[in-house]
Amino acid sequence: MYEFDWSSIPGALPFLWAGMKTTLEITALAVAVGIVWGTLLAIMRMSGIRLLSWFAAGYVNLFRSIPLVMVLLWFFLIVPALMESVFSIPRTSDTRLASAMVAFALFEAAYYAEIIRAGIQSVHKGQMGAALALGMSYGQAMRLVVLPQAFRNMVPLLLTQGIILFQDTSLVYVSSLADFFGAAYKVGDRDGRLVELLLFAGAVYFLICFSASLLVKRFQKKVIA
């Protein structure tokens, strides 16, 4: 039987909390940017304008075809150089958080775009037809008729994707950024107590994500009722 030793955790709590804040920051920004950019991509993809729909499809497929770990790695190595040449931000500033945020936002947008596209497709064709027949323009019909219904259908999925994203932030370990998981791993590695720290991290993730998914469910019931 394994000898558990939890003594590393109390002293590490401030560091773990700082990591949790980083995780929340990345998640919040990526969800916000991801939904906005994802909606635009979904509309572009279904717009019927060839160039736009090709661009959107290319974007979505590109980001969906590469593992997140690789995307993070690339952005971590490239964003600093880009920031320097485009915005002339000195390379000496810490760009790890910025590059992780950019990577997550752009990456998640591809996933949001697919959810939103499926949401729009779940609205019966007749709705669009009816709106157009009432004399609305395409944009009006999309904004006033299709999107509100689509979002209502997909709010639970969008929120669930947010929860997935919250968990995926654990992959920023490739850039040594101390998010919550990274912090737990580092403490465990330093003290030779990896098993304990990872179980602890798992329990914390579970509590947070489970509570969040209960809230999503409650919200879902409200919307449907």
Partner: peptide, 21 residues
């Protein structure tokens, strides 16, 4: 002189030295 510390891993240490981070 300001000191900026960047943690590196065995996988990214060479690229990070090369790209000036």
């Amino acid at each position: 002189l300001q000191i900026k510390l960047t943690p590196v891993t065995s996988q990214n240490r060479i690229p990070l030295v090369q790209n000036g981070t």
